[in-house]
Design a protein around this nucleic acid. Sequence first.
RNA 1: GCGCCCGUAGCUCAGCUGGAUAGAGCAACGGAUUUCUAAUCCGUAGGUCGGGUGUUCGAGUCACCCCGGGCGCGCCA
Length: 568
Amino acid sequence: METFQSLLTKKLASALAAAGFDNVGELTQATDPRFGDYQTNAALMLGKQHSENPRAVAEKILQHLNAADLCESPTVAGAGFINFTLLPGAVANKTAELFADERLGVARSTSPRKIVIDFGSPNVAKPMHVGHIRSTALGDALARIATFLGHDVIRDNHIGDWGTQFGMVIWGWKNLLDREALQRGPLAEIVRIYKETNARSTSDPAVRDACRQELVKLQSGDKENIDIWNECVALSLQDFQHVYQLLDIHYDIQCGESFYNDRLAGVVEGLLKSGIAEISERAVVVFFRDIPELADKPCIIRKSDGGFNYATSDIATVDYRITELMRDTVWYVVGAPQTLHFKQIFEIARREGHQADFRHIPFGNVLGEDRKLMKTRSGENVPLRQLLEEACARARKIIEEKNPNLADAEKIDIARTIGIGAVKYADLSQYRMTDYVFSWEKMLALQGNTAPYLQNAYVRVRSIFRKAGEAAAKIEKFVLHEAAEITLAKRLCQFAEIVPQVLNDFRPNILANYLFELANNFHAFYEGCPVLRSDEPVRSSRLALCDLTGRVLQRGLDLLGIKVPEKM
RNA sequence: GCGCCCGUAGCUCAGCUGGAUAGAGCAACGGAUUUCUAAUCCGUAGGUCGGGUGUUCGAGUCACCCCGGGCGCGCCA
């Protein structure tokens, strides 16, 4: 099926052609209900092009515009906008189409891509902390949306499982490890020895040296050190997995940094041979002399001691993703501080001849209530697992107050759905670049733009069907008389217009905002329009509206990685 | 020094490729329920969009310069 926006855009295009104009401007959802449902600024653009009065141009366009099957006669307004107001009958027909459509009107992309999304990327030997929620939630949502739109998506967890910190971890493992503590809490013990070693090595040069030795041994394949490293990685992965389970996130592949180890030498060699890289001060470096922005910011791909760094492994990763995973699109959901790094990597990839579409999708920080980077009282990063568990506990407490009669197992389940949903939604409902302030009260509030508010709209839908004891019957014709019904139906029709927009600039918050408005429209409808108590044919029509709203809410939240409860 | 990001209502934030009188939520105030779960709805109030100059029919949005905050800039990842 086709959206109103798409249908009207086509009608506008043919009107423009018939009037002898270029196809310029755009047709968008109206910015204000006063202006109807859709608007176009085409006449304004054309007026400028031809130095004519935009309103006169608009009139000319209207002479060739035939949209009587969809809307009232379009009107010229303001400086030269053309406004479209949908006919209730057209809305009713479209809603019926939507009702019958599994995909709720969302079209598959006409140019599907083969995408790899790099998101999450926690570091081994460190617990995941709040900082990881953004990349993880955002990357997962983008993956879900891209998949739904028909793209071929590989979700890749580029784990930080290799690097200089392992010198310290291994030294600590050999000298400080408490086996019993490792049994009780593996990652906690690894973190403890890492921190302890780090502290010692800053004050004791002998320890620092020893750590470096351990690192060299590891990198040259020393059996004992490799075993220790393997165990650390395995224990960390177990810990991550627990968090992913809580978050309902999965990866298709988890190719960490170490995966690329045996490709690094070849990468550097290749870049030297092709002249992209050169030797400078004993290191291998790529310069970007022709790019003003990067002219004074070279990229080191092999250190003067012969070691590789993460730029090297990122280049190897690009090569692998394009040549072996056969991707034409690569998305990196990585924090804003790495913008420069990715500019360099993408430029190197371009020079290597890779044609793929590379995107760095940056994001801001999670702040505490003091507006500084979120930390615990003792100044440490807040472990993600602890944070998620607290979210569930807080949700549980609210459920206990509001709905104490639910069965215990149900309460646990619902608390998890609400708690995790609240954390994700708080993140995704915000523009990704803005630093946002983490607040339990706000994200778990039942009013306002929160997950529980949206989930509650779904619960209300389910409650009606439980009470009715029937599912929504197939219906041919929606009966839309009340303003609340029409508003709700129009909103439902917009879902298909909104979802593809998210990938425009990687903004799931657009979808979140839409769902909030939908929930709000539904709640208003629910207040003003009795469903089960009304007579036919209104009853069936309203029941179908409820069903459709429930489906859009469920699907929309699912695209954000958020679940819905049946009761709450 | 060079570069990137952010600055919108008391608070938390929307406002994608420039579009109409800048929008929500929270908090404040005022209403609505013998309910299909009020975990809700409706209304009122609240703004020199950090400041300035420019580009044009039109700037929160684009350009330049300041101010404020955050973060990066050869051998960490």
